[in-house]
Design a protein around this nucleic acid. Structure first.
Length: 864
RNA sequence: GCCCGCUUGGCGAAAUGGUAGACGUAGCGGACUUAAAAUCCGUUUCCCGCAAGGGAGUGCCGGUUCAAGUCCGGCAGCGGGCACCA
């Protein structure tokens, strides 16, 4: 990386960003410009970016995220909105515990150190934040209210405890998330992961399945993509639930199917290895027990599932077909049937389902098609592929001749009539397990008593504070082995009891922080008047990687908080913007080692060499910045070198914000060039400009008028760009605007006046994007007000409209000439002018015009 | 496997169905300079042409239209989400 010039070069011709930025940040802070309070007389606007984890340093993704949010916040403020723009810390989580174990530092100390550092870095970006509202989720002042909400949800029946299967690492003594199991082994210990049944706390997100799905529709200011992902995740499917009789057993076996039309093609029944029937069978059969144990040992990773073949164990039981009493279906325990979807049991119709077909072929079960493709003959048979399309029902009694949809309805109706089943809706969404066997999280406020069971911690005993004297030298949960912390008396009966030692999933912390920001110091979770005023968040901005979990959990939390009387809205985020990632090329030395960008010299021909030693370097494709590939650029270093405004300008400039952005050295240099160009432009003209507020001279020359038109057109266009999140377009307009300003020669009173108007306007338009430079230039232009408190400039509509337009003239749809004419010239005149063009006549080849299409102010197309 | 998105100069990208490539970046040529940096000016989709101008061109094939990067149908490539969900 070569750096030609930087903000540190303090020559009179260069903007000293470092000095200026510190000065304006201090002034904003002292005057409390960005402090927010409820004000019923003004429209409110709540802008929020996803809050960071205090990992240590901010990265370019943060710079992009918070710049986008800050542009919105500053712009809306200028438009007269009462803006709330807060910041906080998603501070609980595993990294702090890892640091504790590896570096011997307490998680709290590590976290608060990182917060202090990152707060300093964020302040250096000049963000228009209300720092008085700062919160950290690891602070008892925050998590005590989360504990109160937990108890509210518990009372409302939205929290419950049940046994569930988890991935258990027998070496580290902890539960692992699916993502932490690699090839069936713990990612850290390498131990074979076991499936274990543990008691876990769950949030009953499924209580809102239907609502969470239905309410996606009206979220018009959310990306379609995110809504679709949530829709798929919730996974609603309609079907039939009905019961099989099993020979020799009293209980019927309920199954769920979305293809009731294929019931006459059934050839087996299968239950999950975790199904009660399977467990029953295993009591008497070692073979069955062995099979179940084997299934449970199987990995849950994607790869493991993909490779796993369909396998089953024949229980010897027979289910009888509900409509064909003579048809006896073998009951299998099958590894591909999931306990927690539907009823944990299915009927298999191999002819019309891929999994069932694979299973049937393996165990020699009949494959009987009952849905025939439209043009199939009576001898239609299934080969290697099941037939899953529409068709005509065959060999299916009362369904014969029907299409698939009609047959589904008919079958459901028949089953409902006979009382054997019913139409059912099933969701893929499962309840949210929040128990984590970890220290650095919000303690779950429950006490376990031998006689009373799980007893909520009384409200007056909140918060349940994490003990500080814990050790991380052994695997497992430090809360579990703490000598005193968990030993308490039962709040109900007074007997000896133990605290819940599990803590909350950190996704719980981030599911309601946006509500807490409304009243961050209140002694209750949220103050009604505050949340009623501010919520929902008007514009939320963050990475698409949170499209499902965080955004879905937050939607659940709002509903739960609504139900428990805390808020009156269901949807937390009225508008959502998902930004792209920041990418960078990666560099590899001849020996295969990754190199940091600053170790590499980029050559004009596109090749690269190592600065030290001069060996050739392999330039890799651009990808997400990651420590392992060393393709990272530290925001701190960039801001130190060029200032925050230049960094902000660059991340806004190159790509549309929803798309990935490639960080390039030439790009940041270009942004730095522009920063200085503006600064010089104002500096060079400061002496000749008329004083601020001078009335316009009566006579305006053509050049001055042309600039005035650019000024007012720029206001209109750039405003539209900001409104629609097209910040790269706004940047391009600013360049055009600045080019026009540079082109007008000063000297005459009209030109000087137009230049003042232009410079003041560009400074105000750029202020949301480059706030420090804006203040600096505003001040240079003779103003003593703060630009951050100025209203948005207004365009003169007459000037913003063109008085001349360029008309394209086409012959047969091909461009043959252009006309510059007065705006709104009548169609007849345009047509006449077009037909008089030499080149147009040439391409008409003497033929008469058959048809002339005239679009006013745009185009004339002549068809011959 | 299912669902979704994307594909335009060397590169990042613009373009309410109406002049494709604005703006930036990189390159090339020039001015300034002892020189470099910085700055400023010019130029840059490809092909033919001294020029005027012409031809081709938005992943590929086809369609709708006076007019298609944009709309419709099909295909390919790349990326993302979900995935034994019955």
């Amino acid at each position: 990386m070569t750096t030609a010039s930087t903000a540190a070069d303090d020559t009179p011709e260069r903007y000293n960003a470092k000095e200026a930025e510190a000065k304006w940040q201090k002034l904003w802070d002292e005057r409390g410009v960005f402090r927010a309070s409820e004000d019923a007389s003004r429209p409110k606007y709540y802008v929020l970016e996803m809050f960071p984890s205090p990992s240590g340093r901010i990265h370019m993704g943060h710079v992009r995220n918070y710049t986008l949010g800050d542009v919105v916040a500053r712009y809306k403020r200028a438009r007269g909105f009462n803006v709330l723009h807060p910041m906080g810390w998603d501070a609980f989580g595993l990294p702090a515990e890892n640091a504790a174990r590896d570096q011997g530092v307490h998680p709290a100390a590590w976290t608060y150190d990182n917060i202090a550092n990152m707060r300093r870095e964020l302040k250096g970006m000049g963000l228009s934040l209300d720092w008085d509202r700062e919160i950290a989720t690891c602070h008892p002042g925050y998590y005590q209210h989360q504990q109160a909400l937990f108890l509210d949800f518990l009372e409302a029946g939205l929290v419950y405890r049940r046994k569930s299967m988890v991935n258990w690492d027998p070496v580290d003594h902890t539960v692992l998330a699916n993502e932490q199991v690699i090839d069936g082994r713990g990612w850290r210990s390498g131990a074979l992961v076991e499936k274990r049944e543990l008691s876990q706390w769950f949030f009953k997100i499924t209580a809102f399945s239907d609502d969470l799905l239905q309410a996606l529709g009206p979220l018009e200011r959310w990306p379609e993509r995110v809504r679709l992902m949530q829709e798929n995740w919730i996974g609603r499917s309609e079907g039939l639930r009905f019961d099989f009789d099993v020979e020799g057993r009293a209980e019927r076996l309920p199954v769920f199917t979305t293809r009731p039309d294929t019931l006459f093609g059934a050839s087996f029944v299968a239950v999950s290895p975790d199904h009660p029937l399977a467990k029953d069978v295993a009591k008497k059969s070692n073979a069955a027990a062995d099979f179940i144990a084997e299934c449970q040992r199987m990995g849950t990773s994607e790869a493991a599932i993909e490779q796993a073949e369909k396998r089953g164990h024949d229980t010897g039981l027979i289910a009888t077909h509900p409509l064909l009493p003579g048809l006896r279906l073998p009951v299998y325990i099958a590894n591909f049937v999931l306990m927690d979807y539907g009823t944990g049991a299915i009927f298999g119709c191999p002819a019309h389902d891929a999994r069932d077909l694979e299973f049937a072929r393996k165990y020699g079960l009949p494959v009987r098609p009952v849905v025939f493709p439209k043009d199939a003959g009576a001898d239609f048979a299934i080969g290697d592929e099941p037939y899953t399309g529409d068709g005509v029902l065959t060999h299916s009694q009362f369904l014969d001749g029907l299409g698939v949809d009609a047959a589904k309805s008919a079958m459901i109706a028949r089953m409902e009539e006979t009382g054997r089943g019913e139409r059912t809706v099933n969701f893929r969404l499962r309840d949210w397990g929040v128990s984590r066997q970890r220290y650095w999280g919000c303690p779950i406020p429950v006490i376990h008593c031998g006689t009373c069971g799980a007893v909520p911690v009384p409200r007056d005993q909140l918060p349940v504070v994490l003990p500080e004297d814990v050790t991380f030298d052994k695997p497992g949960n430090p809360l579990e082995r703490h000598p005193t912390w968990k030993h308490v008396n039962c709040p109900k009966c007074g007997a000896k009891a133990v605290r819940e030692t599990d803590t909350c999933d950190t996704f719980v912390d981030s599911s309601w922080y946006f509500a807490r920001f409304c009243s961050p110091r209140a002694d209750i979770p949220v103050v009604k008047s505050a949340v009623d005023y501010w919520l929902p968040v008007d514009q939320y901005i963050g990475g698409v990687e949170h499209a499902i979990l965080h955004l879905l959990y937050s939607r659940f939390f709002m509903r739960a908080m609504h139900k428990t009387g805390h808020v009156k809205v269901d949807e937390p985020f009225a508008g959502l913007f998902t930004q792209g990632m920041v990418l960078h090329e990666s560099y590899r030395a001849a020996d295969g080692k990754w190199l940091y960008p600053e170790e590499v010299q980029l050559n004009a021909d596109g090749s690269a060499t190592q600065i030290e030693g001069g060996q050739p370097v392999t330039v890799g494709r651009r990808e997400v910045m990651s420590k392992s590939k060393k393709n990272v650029v530290q925001p701190g270093a960039i801001i130190e070198e060029f200032g925050a405004d230049t960094a902000r300008w660059f991340v806004l400039s190159d790509s549309p914000p929803e798309r990935d952005l490639e960080w390039t050295d030439s790009g940041i240099q270009g942004a730095w060039r522009f920063t200085n160009r503006l600064w010089r432009l104002v500096g060079a003209l400061a002496d000749v400009l008329p004083p601020a507020g001078t009335p316009a001279p009566g006579q305006m020359g053509d050049a001055a008028m042309a600039l005035r038109r650019t000024v007012h057109k720029s206001i209109v266009q750039l405003t539209g760009d900001l409104e629609s999140f097209r910040f790269n377009r706004a940047v391009a307009r600013a360049y055009e605007f600045a080019n026009a300003l540079g082109d007008l020669k000063p000297g005459t009173p009209d030109a000087n006046w137009a230049l003042r108007e232009g410079l003041e306007t560009i400074v105000r338009l750029l202020a949301p994007m480059m706030p420090h430079l804006g203040e600096e230039l505003w001040h240079k232009l003779g103003h003593s007000t703060l630009l951050a408190e100025m209203p948005w400039p207004e365009a003169d509509a007459a000037l913003a409209a063109d008085d001349q337009v360029t008309i394209a003239v086409q012959v047969q749809g091909k461009l043959r000439a252009t006309l510059v004419v007065a705006k709104d010239m009548p169609q007849k005149e345009l047509e006449a002018l077009a037909l008089a063009e030499e080149n147009v006549l040439r391409f008409m080849e003497g033929k008469p015009a058959r048809k002339v299409i005239v679009v006013p102010n745009r185009i004339v197309n002549i068809v011959v």
